[in-house]
């Protein structure tokens, strides 16, 4: 389950947004991604950071933007982990996200084909032909939990922009 409350921050300069994400796979961690124009700074920290952001929220003249959630069942199939997430934005249903994780491997380039084949097995034609945009530059690097979060962020951003259900 991924939760994402959102803080918009207005300071001198370009407007900045802080995204706070929680993942139920890593219950002891809070991921924060600060977007300022083109630059992105991620931060991985203890859950108390949310409390600090609440204090800072009173400092910043930001509005809390929409809260997005992807919730659903979790399946383990041999070495794969499949999570089906129903995406809701402020209690409005937006769509369904499918997350597939191949656990033994840490480098995306080695197992992307395997994951795609596996997805084709149950998604059929919906299975993407290309790796997600975020990962395309990072195929040879070691995968981190932060990368999962970044991918979710990307998807949530798409959902925000989208008007219809995806």
């Amino acid at each position: 389950m991924i939760l994402m409350p959102n803080f918009g921050v207005v300071v001198a300069g370009p407007p900045r947004t802080v995204h706070l994400l929680n993942n139920s796979e890593q219950p002891a961690t809070v991921f924060s991604i600060l977007e300022s124009g083109q630059k992105q700074v991620p931060l991985v920290s203890d859950p108390l950071f949310m409390d600090l952001m609440k204090k800072l929220a009173s400092v910043y003249t930001g509005k809390q933007q929409t809260r997005m959630e992807a919730k659903g069942p979790r399946f383990e199939v041999a070495d794969f982990l499949v999570k089906l997430g129903t995406v809701t934005m402020n209690q409005n249903f937006k769509g369904v996200l499918v997350e597939v994780e191949y656990r033994p491997c840490v480098v995306p380039a080695y197992c992307w084909e395997l994951i795609r084949e596996f997805m084709q097995g149950f998604l059929g034609t919906c299975a993407p032909a290309q790796a997600p945009v975020y990962l395309q530059n990072r195929m040879q690097e070691i995968y981190q939990p932060l990368d999962t979060i970044q991918q979710y962020l990307e998807q949530f951003r798409e959902y925000r922009k989208a008007v219809t259900v995806r």
């Binding site: 900045r16 630059k39 920290s45 203890d46």
Partner: peptide, 13 residues
């Protein structure tokens, strides 16, 4: 937190 906190705070203002 992770070591990116300095950059984070500087970007935050």
């Amino acid at each position: 937190c992770s070591a990116t906190v300095v950059e984070f705070l500087t970007e935050l203002g």
